[in-house]
Write a protein that binds this DNA or RNA. Structure first.
Lengths: 330, 330
DNA sequence: ATGAAAGCGCTAACAC
DNA sequence: GTGTTAGCGCTTTCAT
């Protein structure tokens, strides 16, 4: 009853031309009501649905967009992808996902390739360098950037990392901490650079604060491995690069018999779903991935509709104070 | 330099017919080497790449498959999706994702719709009832099922939930526990039913074991909310529906001043990346989502290549014993 | 209002 | 070997 029927089959069955069937299927108003009914009945009876492929070719639109992420396993990207996907679906669009597996060198070709089979692309936290991105964007338009600094050739939806870090530092400072250790991410990365800049800014704001940095990484294991650096630093509070690092550290500190927050306070960054459930619950700066995914889709939708490119949207992370931070030991 | 060139542009530029360009682009062996070079040079110079859309229509293949998941935010599905996506990409295939947002009633139409624009579909832990699935599968072929019991009309890649649960129970029994509480998932769901069956089986195996059940759920909050049920049960060990529930419970137990594993042992299920980093680290049955994603792709690939449908692959979860379980208090 | 025909861009059968 | 032609299935002028 189903399967490989073409529009001409329906046309024959209804005794009309393929053009009329097409018009009916697309709700073209100027078709005789009688024919509309006949055609709809025929389509219904045969179980016909237009081939999306053929429509795409004829229309030059696929009703699909690409979302390129550095790692489908990263909770932060998942949050964005999830909402983006649902928002797009609500508007009748489909989502093609591409995972660069954190290999910056592959991003460009993956993006170009995927973009060609879709109507637009959302680049989530692309790892490539600025100049490469600049050169690439024109070839990808319409494109939307998530978590990259405002850019002229594409709408941007980003979290204010510097602001979030600042809030976290302010929080620790208010609690009385005067010696904080920042566990940095991947050395050359853009996001790490931005956070380091924020750290530098905080140092300027608080002359009474000792703000150390230690190389670390971005995953659980990196956080766990930082336990010695933390112990040796003499800091009373640790600003982990993200929640994953914080969780790894929390776990290692527990094993080492170092109490949190009694002996040392720990903060994360991102506000992943697990943060409230660590022991102790993690104080973090929650990045609103849901709203970001939704806004990224809105921006893409605007581009697709030929509207003006939306201006950059920067979201302030929300400070979530939980049990992992407290005043330093007197 | 790029953009809307058609195959005829290249043909003209190289002084050959479109057919020849097509042959060259597809590496057809019987083309004069001289022409091959000329065409390649022309394509290169113009920056030409064949339109995937037009190719798809002509070939009847899109080089894309659909992966339908109940929730893009669920760590278990993410694991499968991630590996599946990378495996497919390694074979030159693209992945379209669809998220049913846990609404079983929407799965069928989402699947049919997405399937029409791709070459096949992988249904990850579909929530729909068996009879609905039976009726749907023929319309979706080629299709692969992940985490559903072996089925005749589609290859299946699944985790052995009953086996995993059995191992967990065996582990607790060996430790000396004789009163265990199982925190069940969503009442009507297929996966919950399977686990309940495994629980029943374990009761038969161990007449000396009291195995209680309590309604719970599948998320953090559900686990946290179960703390009273746990306390009131008198059980010395808790078998949480999954790792999320276990984490929620661990957190709530900690807040309630109930020590794990001293006062009560807790186990999870799934082996999500966070499991080793909870406090205490979570004993769980680790489902090999990586291998499952890879095998799901292999099965799909076989179907796509017209090979025989692979037989069901059931993966035994790996017992990961960590700090959340210990002998009961004497 | 409806149908005939051209075209979206490519591939494959069929001739030469 | 290479070009010509006919689709793949739909939409959309352009006539009528």
């Amino acid at each position: 009853m189903t399967g490989k029927l073409r529009i001409s089959d329906v046309a024959k069955h209804a005794g009309v031309s393929p053009a009329t069937v097409s018009r009916v299927m697309n709700g073209n108003p100027k078709v005789d009501p009688g024919l509309v009914a006949r055609v709809q009945a025929a389509a219904e009876e045969l179980g016909y649905t237009a081939s999306p492929l053929a429509r795409s070719l004829a229309l030059g639109k696929t009703q699909t967009i690409t979302v390129l992420v550095p790692d489908l396993g990263n909770p932060t990207f998942q949050g964005v992808l999830r909402t983006l996907s649902r928002s797009a679906a609500a508007d009748g669009y489909h989502v093609l996902v591409a995972d660069s597996a954190e290999v910056a060198a592959d991003e460009a070709s993956l993006a170009v390739d995927a973009r060609r089979r879709t109507d637009g692309i959302v680049l989530v936290a692309p790892r490539m360098a600025d100049d490469e991105l600049d050169a690439l964007l024109p070839r990808l338009a319409p494109a939307v950037l998530v978590n990259r600094p405002p850019h002229e050739s594409a709408p941007v939806v980003a979290a204010d990392y510097a602001g979030g870090l600042r809030e976290l530092i302010e929080h620790l400072h208010d609690l009385g901490h005067r010696h904080i250790l920042f566990l940095a991410g991947v050395p050359g990365s853009a996001s790490n650079a931005r956070r380091l800049a924020a750290i530098a800014g905080a140092r300027a704001d608080h002359p009474d604060l000792v703000l150390d940095e230690a190389a670390c990484g971005t995953g659980f294991a990196d956080g766990a491995a930082a336990v010695d650096a933390v112990r040796g630093s003499g800091a009373t509070a640790v600003l982990a690069y993200n929640d994953l690092v914080a969780m790894g550290l929390l776990s290692a500190l527990h094993d080492a018999g170092i109490a949190v927050p009694a002996d040392v306070s720990v903060t994360g960054f991102d506000g992943i779903p697990f943060a409230p459930y660590t022991t102790p619950p993690l104080t973090t700066a929650a990045v609103p991935t849901d709203r970001m995914g939704e806004r990224a889709w809105a921006a893409m939708r605007a581009l697709l509709d030929g509207d003006d490119a939306p201006s950059p949207e920067v979201f302030a992370p929300v400070l979530a104070v939980r049990g992992s931070t407290a005043p330093p030991r007197a």
